[in-house]
């Protein structure tokens, strides 16, 4: 009893923090979303998503987030697997090298990509030196996806690497012992046992990718308008906080939906795999 009181007492600062920084703003956004600038109740800020411009942005966001997540997964899984299988004594250092970019300023890293990808940038000067045709991908969807993949890749590698590290080596040996070759061991044992890591990786990449607007600002140059950019512009340029809040709520619903879909995948597979 005393123990319980003591623990709940310790949670007080956190509760205050959540109140002020999460719950209160959420109610504010909800309040803005459900009213017009005169302050009376309306649903028009929510239904505004049906506007073709907004729908197009939302669809573009989903597409970019989807490709970003898929490419990250395809790149990250082999990397995590190789990292895990390396019989290195200093694994920490290798993992550190992958996290290192995360410690540098995010804007700087994206600006660097702007310089690399620009028409007279490093990429094109390398290509022209090699006698290859130059690419004009800056300010396109490709550049935005590339920037996001670069930015979110560590968030995919780390949970997968962690999940792989948690697999008991003896379980993998047991599969080989029972006659499984490398591929069977991978598909029947390693992959299913790292599923939790894959799901957290997908959530950790897909959710921020869906609502991102900074990467598309810098690498899309105003030509790639994600739903995040639309919301940002409603707040900063159009000064229409009500509309911005309404679209935010819609986006939040999409985020929650995608997370619950992922969790459902998790649950159903835990329920038992067919033989």
């Amino acid at each position: 009893m005393i123990n319980k009181m003591r623990t709940s007492f310790l949670a007080t600062p956190y509760a205050i923090w959540v109140m002020i920084c999460t719950i209160l703003p959420l109610f504010y956004i909800l309040g803005y979303a459900l009213t017009n600038d005169a302050g009376s109740f309306t649903l028009s800020n929510l239904t505004a998503i049906a506007d073709p411009v907004h729908l197009k942005s939302l669809w573009l966001s989903i597409r970019v987030a989807f490709f970003t997540t898929a490419i990250c997964l395809l790149l990250a899984y082999p990397v995590a697997l190789i990292l895990h299988n390396l019989k290195l004594t200093n694994k920490g250092l290798v993992v550190f090298l992958f996290i290192l970019p995360m410690w540098m300023n995010f804007m700087l890293r994206i600006l660097a990509w702007q310089i690399i990808l620009s028409n007279n940038g490093i990429l094109n000067s390398i290509l022209s030196t090699l006698g290859l045709p130059t690419l004009h991908i800056l300010y396109t969807e490709t550049a935005v996806t590339l920037g996001m993949v670069y930015d979110f890749l560590p968030y995919m590698i780390l949970p997968i690497y962690n999940a792989l590290s948690k697999i008991n080596d003896q379980v993998v040996e047991a599969a080989a012992d029972l006659g499984a070759n490398w591929w069977t061991t991978f598909t029947k044992v390693t992959l299913p046992l790292s599923k939790d890591g894959i799901i957290s990786g997908i959530i950790m990449v897909f959710v921020p990718a869906l609502s991102s607007f900074v990467v598309s600002n810098l690498l899309g140059g105003g030509k790639v308008l994600l739903i995040g950019n639309v919301i940002e512009q409603e707040f900063t340029l159009a000064r229409n906080w009500n509309l911005g809040s309404g679209l935010s709520i819609i986006l939040m619903i999409f985020v929650l939906l995608s997370m619950s879909v992922m969790n459902k995948v998790d649950d159903s597979e835990n329920g038992g795999m067919p033989v």
Binding site: N168, Q170, V171, E173, A175, D177, L178, V189, P192, L193
Partner: peptide, 14 residues
Amino acid sequence: INTVFQKYALFPHM
């Protein structure tokens, strides 16, 4: 040859 491992090493997802 088959092995019985020290910590059982059963497949937890099966």
